[in-house]
Each structure stands twice: as structure tokens, then as C-alpha cells.
Design a protein around this nucleic acid. Structure first.
Length: 264
DNA sequence: ATGGTTGTTCCACAA
């Protein structure tokens, strides 16, 4: 079995004891992190190496930042540190590598709020570039796992109060349409494939307004799988325990397992 | 309708 986890940690330095403690107990083979909020050279590699994890880090000062770490015994090869066609992109939001024969990406899709600002068209352009890149990988029949903070609420069942989120960059029709176009290239939402209709499968709860104690969250962290990896999907769950800890991130990890071979 | 929080940074901004 190959175990993957994705987690927007909202500052890897501020979250270090929570992240390493969780890593020790869950021991995924591949760990995808987002919102490192530190420069590449300031990533606390030693803390992860002590636990047997190393890999690729793409950071920047103060904002964004993504990592793809693999357990000792595996390696991350042919690393890509940005989406192709990203001359405009100084933001650290994408890292992709090959692990155990699987092409894996850790992505932090732009939030896009406020929608009247230039941030929203930037989000949509970023999604266009992601879709173009993924189309190429799918055409080559690459076994692909896209994991990360997509900043997209796919369906009304993925938000505690859909009506209140209609105009938000995470849920407005253009955002969802673009996300559907990505999925419709031939990707499978790992969580929904195994848990259709399961309510309150949130991966994010805002720090403000008591969203966590009221369990008012969003499902915006996803694993999307190409057919070659979807055929091997065994499990996918949200681990909400880290969200309840002191000094928690506002996101919680999603954990997914793939069989080593096809199950049919 | 408002207010509510956290992290990094420089006196705000992003989420």
C-alpha cells in the first residue's frame, strides 16, 4: 500500500511540533504540505529528516510555499518546481515529482479573494495553466496524484452554508466551472468516490467566528487521481483530530491509500 | 449586520 497525506499547515515553523507529532503517528509514504510561509532555505529539513522524511521544497518569504516529502526508502525524482507556462508566477504554489512510479503534485491553488481584485483573474489563469499541464500528463497516461489546497468548494454539500458563499472566490460559478473542467479531463475526486454524499467532511474551518466549535467548515483540500491511480484507490479520509489541538492550522490533513497494483 | 483569528511582517496583508 502507498499512503499519501496532504495538509495546509499555515506556517511550517509555527506548526512544527503538531506536524511532526502527527507524522510520527500516521507515517504516510508521501507527505504534501502547503502554506509553508518560509523561504526554501529556512524549511526545517532536519526535523523531518530525523523522522525519515526528505524531498522537494519550494518556498518564498512570508506567503505560500509547498513541499513534497517522502519516507526513507522512497525517492522523489524528476522534480518540477512550478507549473509550466508560469513566467508571471513568482509565487511558490506547485511542486511535482515521481515517487514509486507515481507522478505526484503538491499544489496550493490561489485563494482569489476579493473577487473584484486582480487576485481573482489570477486564480482563474492559474487554473487554466493547471488544466493545460494536467491534460498533457493524462494524454501520456501517467499515473497521477494531484493533492493539495485547491481553494475550491466543489459542490454545495462541501460547505456549511452554501448560500452565504455564493459570491466567494472559492465557490462562485466561474471557479466551480473551471474546477469541473479540470476534473472532467478524466480525474477522480478520491474522497467523494469512496464517500458519496457524506456530510460535513470538512478539511478547513476558519479561525474566526467559532467555525471550529460550531463545525462550520469547507471541503477544499482534495486528492484528484488519473484513471491509472484511481483504479488503485483503497481509502481516503479526513483526519480532523489535528484541527482540535492547541495552535492548530485552520486546515486538517486528508489521507489516501493506493494499492501497489490494480485491484481487479 | 457585525464581528470574529492567526501568521508574518513592518506600521499592513493574506487567509
Amino acid at each position: 500500500m502507498l499512503k499519501f497525506a496532504t495538509w495546509n499547515v499555515n506556517s511550517v515553523k509555527a506548526r512544527l511540533p503538531i506536524v511532526t507529532g502527527w507524522l510520527e503517528s500516521v507515517r504516510p509514504d508521501v507527505l504534501l504540505l502547503q502554506e509553508l510561509k518560509c523561504e526554501t532555505g529556512a524549511f526545517p529539513s532536519e526535523s523531518f529528516e530525523t523522522l525519515g522524511y526528505a524531498g522537494a521544497v519550494v518556498g518564498q518569504k512570508a506567503y505560500n510555499g509547498v513541499a513534497l516529502l517522502v519516507r526513507r526508502g522512497l525517492s522523489a525524482c524528476d522534480v518540477l518546481t512550478a507549473l509550466p507556462g508560469c513566467s508571471e508566477d513568482a509565487q511558490a504554489r506547485y511542486v511535482e515529482a515521481t515517487v514509486a512510479g507515481v507522478r505526484v503534485a503538491s499544489l496550493y491553488l490561489p485563494n482569489g479573494n476579493p473577487v473584484e481584485s486582480e487576485k481573482y483573474p489570477y486564480k482563474l489563469r492559474w487554473m487554466d495553466r493547471l488544466r493545460a499541464h494536467v491534460a498533457g500528463l493524462l494524454a501520456a497516461e501517467v499515473p497521477l496524484v494531484l493533492g493539495g489546497d485547491f481553494n475550491i468548494i466543489p459542490e454545495p454539500e462541501d460547505v456549511y452554508a452554501p448560500a452565504e458563499w455564493e459570491g466567494d472566490a472559492l465557490f462562485r460559478p466561474e471557479s466551480r466551472r473551471s474546477y469541473r473542467a479540470l476534473v472532467n479531463l478524466g480525474l477522480t475526486d478520491a474522497f467523494r468516490a469512496l464517500h458519496p454524499g457524506e456530510p460535513r467532511a470538512w478539511t478547513f474551518w476558519d479561525y474566526q467566528a467559532g467555525r471550529w466549535p460550531r463545525d462550520q467548515g469547507l471541503r477544499i483540500d482534495h486528492f484528484l487521481l488519473a484513471p491509472q491511480t484511481a483504479d488503485r484507490l483503497v481509502s481516503c479520509r479526513v483526519d480532523r483530530t489535528p484541527r482540535g489541538l492547541e495552535k492548530a492550522s485552520d486546515h486538517t490533513p486528508v489521507v489516501m491509500e493506493l494499492a501497489r497494483d490494480r485491484g481487479y
